[in-house]
Nucleic acid binder design. Structure first.
Lengths: 347, 347
DNA sequence: ATGAAAGCGCTAACAG
DNA sequence: CTGTTAGCGCTTTCAT
């Protein structure tokens, strides 16, 4: 290994002239418990520092059956929505003395499955997964094995598992209601990956908002198949060439919106004069877009923070052989951030 | 551990009725080498699969002195510039059978130092660091210990170490030259974190472009102290209230630009009519900003890809006790992406 | 107040 | 063609 000549507890013990047991005890702060003399303790501590001794966590992990490591599976870490969550998870994990192994599933269930196996092999103490989200069968075994697990962003109704998500239904409902209140009647929806909870709930919020306000539902106004930029572009292209053209687009992700903006500009149209837009996911740049974007903001910081705390709880229960902590289902409220991308139409 | 009751190589061996050695050999694809009977091989393989056996990588790591793990230290994983790089590193690492331990240093040298220690304790096979970048003393020991290391984005002239960076000097030089060619004469520069190579070179590119075109250098037009959004806001605020007002701002990062845009809008000014802007870092949204931003694009995908490949080379040399591979200094060209944020002034 | 020895799960040297 | 044994670096039981 790169660090093959690294110091070991043995080399420290040799230098001080004590046993490895003593060194281990001192280094783990158990000098008191084992009534090790102050003098010995100090010498061990000092020698370890002098030698630049760094405990081998791999060996500790093997021995202790606890690696102080968590696994994090994310569909696309380059998406700022996910990277913000990842950041918060990592920062909280580290504060708790945990390292984070990152795995980008590239929105591919097969890769997600492999990651799961990989991380189990690495004996992570727990897992936080933002699943691709169409199927959950490969995640069930994790549950059976009692590996602490928290799911974020996309959940599975059929899976009895702690999760932290946004209130996607209400977020969408609020967004579309806002469009309707501004007298929009032909409202399109560019959806993301079908058969994910996130998409399902956002589209359901869209449907129900129309219904609640007594508007007809035109299924052909719901279009799209992924949360990516390209899908937004294609979706908007199609929608813009419909007659009558929708007066507003509800976009179910930040990247979809970017793609849709591309299409709208390309068609020589402007937001909100020719078409209004409202988008899921607030971003640092939302204020500075050609038309400052009215968005549904999610509490990304909180998602990461809460997810780790819940995982930590599970891990501690597991280690202490306590009975399993209760399954938590955290749904965080979203917030409508009104900017300039929605025009008030005449009645 | 969460997975305390997981299958081991022993339980597989027991079930098949062979020794652990045989199981290990089969599972590591060495059945041929050790001339293990086809029948035994098949039974081992099948039994392992049936039992859902997953090799314990912690134990393997300890035994093999190779963990198939790399450490990645990044100053802010929520910044899309870094998260794109991280994504490419993770994807390439995984292809090579390596897991990535992520550490967010939060632009804090002290945390970076701690991460370094942590990752060494975890016996990573190699490290990719995007350093905070002001000092390098804490990184030197890594080099002494012959731990494979690749530095990205920000490097240290005094450190004899492989790195992958962008041609920041030329990028900045090109950007400012472009402004000058468009007849700008009072050009401000909002800089990032002082005493980082990235900042130094970008500012130097700025200076030299002015010089080359025979323009005077006004030090008071160089302002700022971090790569963050807030710094951009403050910097622009100050610059806009100068008389005469600069006609253009060269912004040294994507986040600085966002902050600067905020200040410009707040002052009721418009880009590029009242003030031109050119910014380092191309982003998916650059096209859709209030004024589509003219940028210096870096090859973020390549940075991650190359960094991992170079690290892999070092790791393999290290493992084979070959002589050390040569230190590589990769400087990737940047590209000027012209959009609408720079106005051509009258001569 | 301290140490010897066993063992976490795995691989490799050596032995047949 | 297969198995026995030692040992990676650490913690902990048991012993003194």
């Amino acid at each position: 290994m790169a660090q093959s000549n690294a110091e070991t507890i043995q080399s420290v013990a040799d230098k001080v002239g004590v046993s490895t047991t003593t060194v281990s005890r001192v280094l783990n702060g158990k000098a008191e418990t084992y009534r090790i003399s102050k003098r010995t303790e100090e010498r061990v501590l000092q020698t370890a520092t002098e030698m630049g001794y760094i405990p081998n966590q791999v060996a500790r992990g093997l021995r202790n059956k606890r690696t102080n490591t968590i696994g994090l599976i994310i569909p696309d870490i380059s998406n700022p929505f996910f990277s913000t969550i990842a950041r918060n998870i990592e920062i909280n994990a580290r504060k708790a003395g945990c390292s984070t192994i990152l795995s980008d599933s590239q929105e591919d269930t097969q890769l997600e499955k492999e990651s799961l196996r990989l991380l189990q092999g690495r004996k992570v103490d727990g897992l936080i997964i933002c699943p691709v989200g169409e199927v959950s069968a490969h995640i069930e075994p994790v549950l059976y094995k009692n590996i602490p697990l928290v799911i974020i962003d996309r959940y599975f109704p059929e899976l009895d598992c702690t999760y932290v998500i946004s209130d996607n239904y209400k977020g969408a409902f609020d967004a579309v209601s806002y469009l309707i209140e501004n007298n929009h009647r032909t409202i399109a929806c560019i959806q993301g990956r079908a058969r994910t909870s996130v998409n399902h709930e956002r589209v359901q919020g869209y449907r129900d908002a129309l219904k609640k306000h007594g508007l007809p539902l035109d299924e052909s106004l719901i279009i799209g198949e992924s949360f990516g930029k390209k899908n937004g572009y294609i979706g908007a292209k199609i929608l813009l060439n419909r007659t009558p053209r929708p007066t507003a687009i509800f976009s179910t992700s930040n990247l979809i919106s970017l793609g849709a903006m591309g299409a709208i500009l390309e068609e020589g149209l402007s937001i909100p004069d020719d078409i209004s837009m409202i988008s899921f996911d607030d971003q640092p740049y939302s204020d500075y877009l050609i038309t400052p974007m009215t968005t549904i903001a999610q509490q990304t910081d909180e998602i990461g923070h809460i997810a780790f705390k819940l995982l930590e709880t599970q891990i501690n229960h597991e280690m202490n052989q306590d009975m399993k902590p209760r399954i938590e289902r955290i749904v965080l409220p979203t917030k409508l951030v009104i900017r300039k991308s929605v025009k008030t139409l005449n009645k």
